[in-house]
Nucleic acid binder design. Structure first.
Lengths: 270, 270
DNA sequence: CGACTGCCCACAGCATACAAAGTGCCGTGG
DNA sequence: CCACGGCACTTTGTATGCTGTGGGCAGTCG
């Protein structure tokens, strides 16, 4: 059945849909449990729309698709070697996650992030994360703490090795873990939405406040471990606020730096 | 399969897609602004998927489609007099909003809400609404207050007339207005998502705490008008917490009441 | 009589085909 | 030279056909 390779057979070249790396931290708890129990249902051929979603998302994040760019269904379909149907569905999905703007009758355009939006996003993130920290402190478990400390240790290691990519990944994983400890699935869901978008323009910031960030993480874990909800919330609040401020300063300094949004200049919206 | 009356297939009559009433409070801010500016682009025949979305949503909310029920694309398509394509897109949309669960390869099933989920949802709502109140107090305008007071007045009128439906609508509108005053579009977006789901099982609660609810609204508006952010947040926190507690009490009392979730009994999930 | 297996049917996933609408260009007329 | 109108192409929206998988049912074997 060859899922990954040589799907529709026509074009032998072109950027194929790579087998979804699937390091999604979104995975539902139940799935995790099942897999842990060894009850994995063989290899379900990941729905095409999902692969398409990931492929397009990658292209957006990696700036292969510029903000404001018009996404033509048929082009994407040919490019990915699938029909328009899965592409349409993926675009709807992307729209719901705020990655593209879908204008009825006109088509999809890569969302153009603005400074205001980033600020608002980071503010909301602060809100959600703060609450998650509070709740995590109330529901914390032994293994939860162990996992957090482990992540934190790896974080410091990555910091020392100046491995920014790993640091960002670990940072995301740590926040996701705290989030899960909150035991509020709705909150987890919302936060993951927000986080994905934040991470888009977060990377440049990571480099500049790595050290402080990880010691703050450490303090956060201490507060959670102690079951001190208010303190945990306070630390997380300060932590995410620092991130937000860092981002804004970064913006001020380098208005036209590579990889940062806030240039509605090149983005024409016909 | 005859869900409600007649409906399936043959009959040339029956539940057609009605011309979308479109009282959606979901409308994005920009659209609102455009319409206000009189720049409405004539009457574009609302995309079919949207009409289908509304039609199915209505059926879910009105319990014409039971929680856990398997939604067959082709049946829906025939029933609504459209092809499967728009139905598919509408189902994806519904999935993203938490109304149906889409199991790959199997199809769509009406989401079965649980008490835990409702509780989590209401907790998140409290969080978002509290923040919105705080921000609203900081960004309030003259006309904002006027509008709020107006809504509140109508609310009391509806309360006296015991018009529950209007009360629920006004309540939603009031909260949405406060939310918009926060001047954080991301927050607005998230809150509207949460609110849509909350409103499903909000109605039974409204009946029981209408009076208290509207005097709390009044106090909230006072705080916002005074620009007292902390007080506004405090009031909103208490207000939404009361709603949550009310809901839970309602649950305890009448476990099998009509219109309330938490009966995974009839819902079989094959 | 119970359990297992093989077949059949229904339905989701994907592809393709068709229709309608919008946009830009080009030509012509004032 | 500019403006208006029509035409053609592009692209979305909608419909339909095809295929593979999953699940139910019946028949058969132990």
């Amino acid at each position: 059945m060859l899922w990954a390779v040589d799907q529709t057979g026509v074009s032998p070249e072109g950027s194929w849909i790579d087998p979804p790396p699937h390091l999604e931290s979104t995975m539902s708890l139940s799935e995790t449990q099942h897999e842990a129990a060894g009850a994995r249902r063989i290899a379900r051929p990941v729905p095409l729309r999902e692969s398409v979603y990931n492929a397009i998302l990658d292209m957006i994040v990696s700036r292969n698709l510029q903000p404001g760019q018009h996404l033509v269904e048929s082009e994407l379909a040919v490019m990915l070697g699938v029909s328009r149907q899965p592409v349409r569905e993926a675009l709807q999905w992307l729209k719901n996650d705020g990655w593209v703007d879908l204008r009825p009758g006109l088509g999809a355009y890569v969302h153009t992030p603005t400074v205001e939006e980033a600020d608002q996003l980071l503010a909301v993130r602060r809100l959600l994360e703060t609450e998650s920290a509070r709740l995590a402190a109330q529901h914390v478990t032994e293994e939860g703490i162990t996992h957090l400390r482990d992540l934190c240790r790896q974080g410091f290691a990555a910091l020392e090795a100046e491995d920014v990519a790993t640091m960002v990944a670990l940072n995301a994983e740590l926040h996701a873990t705290v989030m899960r400890l909150s035991r509020n699935d709705v909150l987890v869901e919302l936060a993951s939405q927000v986080d994905r978008r934040v991470r888009w323009y977060y990377t440049p910031v990571a480099r500049h406040r790595g050290a402080q960030s990880w010691s703050e993480h450490s303090a956060l874990i201490d507060a959670i471990a102690a079951g001190n909800a208010d303190r945990a919330a306070e630390v997380m609040h300060a932590h995410t606020e620092h991130t937000r401020v860092s981002y804004l300063e970064q913006q001020d300094k380098s208005g036209a730096d590579a990889g940062t949004p806030a240039r509605p200049v090149t983005a024409r919206q016909p």
